[in-house]
Design a protein around this nucleic acid. Structure first.
Length: 724
DNA sequence: GATCCTTGTTCGCACCGTTA
DNA sequence: TAACGGTGCGAACAAGGATC
């Protein structure tokens, strides 16, 4: 793609602000960078430098009859490090600027990487070096060596940005985590207004080879209004009773009395009750029973005791897996023994466990959380961790009473609603013009983990119109079980979780056969998740109105009655473009970011979804600019009245909601495809544990969260008799 | 070894009430 | 009135696994 970018482009793209654009040779795609950088002065006079970047990628699209390709542009900020840059783990990118005497404005910049090379143990001989592969690549772009010294560049990047002739011109990319004292005052992201300006200039520069695509058209679709935090905490008990059972047990494994009180309060509040006060004599009741119209809940406080203690790691065992097995087995045995209770066998069980976060342990190997989770799951207990209380206060490392309550509420909500798969239904599914009724949504997902958690596990999540919760179908279970039950089966030792692509395709084929009973079904897939296993869903192979996970074996038409297929794509790898929006036809009007459901006027099967604008963006920053001053509130006068004036938004962070593509790959002849795509948009708003819209529709989001419940291989084998 | 794409890590975000 | 804070989600970036 880099070679496809005309070298004259930088001359034809007009300047924006005072900067011109220069080409950059990168590994992926083509990049332009605004040069020279702009400066931003801090209060004490330090100058921080930054540039805009413009990344161009060529993207294919499915279901386009003319097989057209679109160039996606991504505008971002590049902030230049000015002081010592160091990262012991990850590479550091640097831009190298051609020093040759015949370089001109069209000469490309190069991008290379430095990494930290540790010295021998115990000696302070580590140093920054150029990453071998990339440095070799860079050498091809110039006639003589032009790599500056990596240690010098990392030690003082600022000097290389404004060289006095003694050093090569180079810039180090600033990012967070480049050392303790490293910071930058310029905000991240490009505002919608700046993106609009830059895009217009690029379009005019490229007018001989490309034209801007048609603008997307806003299509009104009702979505769930944002619920208040207190409403969200109030659990739908009828739904929970249907998902789990009319009688549930919640164990509260507490370490401190403070957290016990918080957890009891939050649990009672979630059930719409007032929590009774704990006895003043320091004792703790054995259990609380909360009976409401639909649900009976038994809450059983128990000291967590040694369950939460760090694991004992035997470092004389060299093999990592054997060491982990030895460390976790006694803890699993202990947890089994403590949680086992024949009196309540068969009842749905939950546990909130007070255990320290990962940073409190010497290393990840000492952290008992996964061992406890796996033992609990094998007894049918869904668990949620909650970290111990921090001292009360407002300094770092402390928390206020309110924030503590908030995080406990989050923990309760996650355990009782997300892990049980409780979901809402859109009030009016489809578009106002073509409403839908009684549609079942099914999401297909492939869980992929590597290393100790290694798994390639396909699964399906279904949400039917008559149930308030999601069901999950896994390859090793023959039935659609409630989501929470499905999570528990992942702790089984005999679960086959490394499936081949062929097995994945076959499983999805079986799933489709099971769900198609003639009723209306929206099948949702995420292209980036599924296409490597099911190549039939690739851009090039996806055929309208058919369904083929394996391109050689399309599913027979008579098996697909009532089935619609919506294939989604996110902006991962720039597969959907960035966006800006404006009202009406007038581009020069206020440019911002929209939060809507969009129709593509050129492609009848393509729709797009953008989520609600975050509150910070609503404050004016998408309409602001790092380059142009705009009219805005600049502060307050001595009478505390707002003062207005022209201001630059250079230091403001800008956050851009991504564009979600919804391709209606299969629909019935008399369908309005917009209604089906709108359903996917509405499903982003149906989570019961989170008030903001999710990136993915609820059924796909639940599929995504399953990967966090995959346990390492040493924890899914049964505890043997010599353990514990 | 090249390429594709998932995974890991870090930090910013909204949320919304409290506190200085 | 501005700043703060815990949490899950999300963006950005980089690492590295999978596959040919």
């Amino acid at each position: 793609m880099y070679f496809g970018l005309p070298s004259g482009l930088t001359r034809t793209v007009k300047k924006y602000g005072v900067s011109a654009w220069r080409r950059v040779a990168t590994e992926h795609g083509a990049e332009l960078i605004s040069w020279p950088p702009r400066g931003c002065l801090s209060v004490n006079g330090t100058e921080y430098l930054w540039s805009y970047t413009l990344r161009l990628t060529l993207q294919n699209h499915a279901l386009s009859p003319e097989q057209d390709a679109l160039i996606h542009t991504r505008v971002g900020t590049r902030r230049w490090a000015r002081s010592n840059a160091w990262d012991g783990q990850r590479g550091i990118s640097a831009y190298l600027f051609t020093p040759s005497p015949w370089a001109n404005n069209a000469s490309p910049f190069g991008r290379a990487q430095m990494k930290w090379q540790p010295g021998p143990k115990g000696k302070r001989e580590g140093k920054m070096v150029w990453d071998d592969v990339l440095a070799a690549t860079m050498a091809r772009f110039t006639s003589h060596a032009f790599l500056p010294s990596a240690p010098d560049l990392a030690a003082n990047p600022g000097e290389f940005l404004k060289p006095d002739g003694s050093v090569r011109l180079a810039g180090v990319v600033f990012r967070d985590g480049l050392g303790e004292h490293s910071h930058h005052i310029v905000g991240t992201g490009a505002s919608a207004r700046d993106r609009w300006q830059i895009f217009r200039q690029l379009a005019s520069g490229l007018k001989d080879i490309a034209a801007p695509d048609h603008a997307l058209q806003r299509t009104p679709v009702p979505v769930r209004p944002r619920p208040a935090a207190n409403d969200l905490l109030l659990i739908d008990q009828e739904a929970l009773a249907r998902a789990a059972g009319p009688r549930i047990i919640v164990d509260v494994l507490y370490d401190t009395r403070v957290m016990l009180v918080e957890l009891l309060t939050a649990l009672h509040k979630a059930l719409g009750q007032q929590a009774p006060a704990l006895p003043a004599d320091g004792t703790v009741p054995g259990e609380y029973v909360v009976r409401t119209a639909h649900l009976a809940t038994v809450i059983r406080p128990r000291p967590v005791a040694e369950i939460a203690a760090p694991l004992q790691v035997d470092h004389s065992i060299k093999r990592r897996k054997d060491r982990a097995l030895k460390a976790t087995s006694p803890r699993r045995a202990l947890t089994l023994q403590r949680l086992h209770d024949p009196d309540i066998a068969g009842l749905p069980r939950f546990a909130l466990v007070e255990m320290a976060g990962p940073k409190a342990f010497q290393s990840a190997e000492h952290d008992p959380k996964e061992a406890v989770k796996s033992a609990a799951a094998s007894l049918g207990v869904l668990t949620q961790n909650v970290t111990p209380p921090l001292p009360t206060g407002t300094l770092p490392g402390t928390e206020t009473k309110a924030t503590r309550t908030q995080r406990v509420n989050k923990a309760v909500l996650d355990l009782l609603t997300r892990q049980t798969g409780l979901l809402g239904h859109p009030d009016s599914p489809g578009t106002p013009a073509s409403p839908l009724t009684d549609v079942t949504t099914v999401g297909l997902w492939v869980v992929r983990r590597t290393k100790a958690h290694k798994a390639t596990l396909p699964l399906a999540i279904a949400h039917t119109p008559d149930e308030p919760f999601a069901r999950i179908r896994l390859p090793h279970t023959s039935s659609w079980v409630p989501f929470g039950q499905g999570l528990l089966t992942l702790a089984d030792y005999d679960i086959e979780r490394r499936l081949t692509d062929e097995q994945v395709c076959n499983f999805f084929g079986e799933v489709v056969e099971e769900i198609t009973d003639g009723s209306d079904i929206a099948l949702l897939t995420l292209a980036q998740n599924i296409r490597s296993a099911c190549s039939g869903l690739n851009n090039a192979l996806l055929q309208p109105d058919t369904l083929a996970f394996d391109p050689r074996q399309p599913l027979p038409e008579h098996r697909l009655k009532g089935l619609r297929h919506l294939r989604l794509r996110t902006d991962l790898r720039d597969e959907t473009s960035q966006h800006y929006s404006h009202r009406g036809e007038d581009e020069a009007g206020e440019v911002g970011v929209g939060s809507h459901f969009w129709r593509d006027p050129r492609r009848p099967r393509h729709y797009f979804s953008t989520a609600r604008k975050p509150a910070t963006a609503a404050g004016g920053s998408p309409r602001g600019s790092r380059i142009e001053a705009h009219w805005a509130c600049t502060g307050r006068d001595k009478d505390k009245n707002k003062t207005y004036g022209m201001k630059h938004e250079t230091r403001q962070d800008v956050w851009n909601p991504q564009l979600l593509e919804i391709a209606v790959a299969r629909h019935a002849p008399d369908d309005d495809p917009a209604a089906w795509a709108a359903l996917a948009h509405q499903q982003r708003y149906e989570a019961t544990h989170f008030s903001d819209p999710l990136v993915l529709p609820a059924v796909l989001h639940l599929g995504y969260t399953v990967s966090k419940h995959i346990l390492p291989t040493h924890l899914v084998e049964p505890v043997t008799e010599h353990d514990g």
